[in-house]
Design a protein around this nucleic acid. Structure first.
Lengths: 146, 146
DNA sequence: TTCTCAAGAAAGAATGATTATCCCTTCACT
DNA sequence: AGTGAAGGGATAATCATTCTTTCTTGAGAA
């Protein structure tokens, strides 16, 4: 896990670099994303911001998250039928373990993916820009509690 | 690529096995899924069925596809923001190459994924049920035509 | 310090894929 | 032929996300 403070600083830098303001709402959002406890959804970020900024609207969170995604400071994990989840701590593709019961998402430790992508690119002629590897199952905690 | 006719037969068998009827509409849908040219979306299946069954509704396609998914005869590739895509030819998890321009999806040739999943399961305590590996980029054809 | 204006935020409407509901039709079995 | 459950058609409902409009704010100019 990268140091959340470093990530916050990097994100602030990128925003300023591209002429975007660092508003209190944005700062609150990117702090949560930089720590990325459990890969939050927009809704989760919204809930955690409410106490500090009760007037912030969901649309603002969406816009901020998408802005950071465009700046490549946040990775989006999209799931149709459920809310998308976001990772601002490791803003590059990496594998995840998804619990289908409690909906938790944790990083999985697998390497060689980048090399594999390069190999595939060479073999198929595709210009590969990103990838995604997800495992779905039941986490140990959910197995205990049935 | 599995023989489409074999897949059709298998799907018909599974439907009957579980007490579901094989209606003309269902047969039309599963024939398309068994061949799975380009991993069609529900909308694409709908368009291809229209000429033969002009009165079929989208809802029927959705219901049939989900029924086959529940029977594990079809794999769903879901994309938030876009339509889900389906593969009834290889109804087990396998990697895909996705072109972000023309939205085509082709099978990628990568193996060792199942073993990797088993290894991860042992290491993390997760009960891994399925997985998904996608590469996103530009296909050779789209690179040519800019 | 005030003024000005573009960027940002808030609120709610709009979008679009998917699912649910309702009702009619069809088929398997008497 | 009669009956009851499963399937199909049409449309409404849902829900995450995006768009639109209007209001607010803040940085730099005067």
């Amino acid at each position: 896990m990268a140091d959340p403070q470093d990530r916050v600083d990097k994100m602030i830098h990128e925003l300023k670099e591209h002429g975007f303001r660092v508003t209190p709402q944005r700062l609150a959002v990117l702090k949560i994303l930089a720590a990325s406890h459990g890969h939050p959804s927009v809704e989760m970020i919204f809930e955690r911001i409410k106490p500090d900024f009760p007037t912030t609207s969901l649309a603002t969170i969406y816009k901020t998250v998408n802005l950071l995604k465009d700046l490549r400071e946040v990775v989006e994990l999209d799931f149709s039928g459920e809310s998308n989840r976001y990772d601002g701590n490791k803003p590059y593709p990496h594998p995840h373990l998804n619990c289908t019961k409690c909906k938790s998402i944790v990083d999985a430790d697998v390497d060689g993916l980048t090399e594999l992508a390069q190999h595939l690119a060479k073999k198929t002629g595709y210009q590969i820009l990103t990838h995604r590897l997800d495992f779905f199952g039941i986490c140990p905690r959910c197995q205990e509690t049935q």
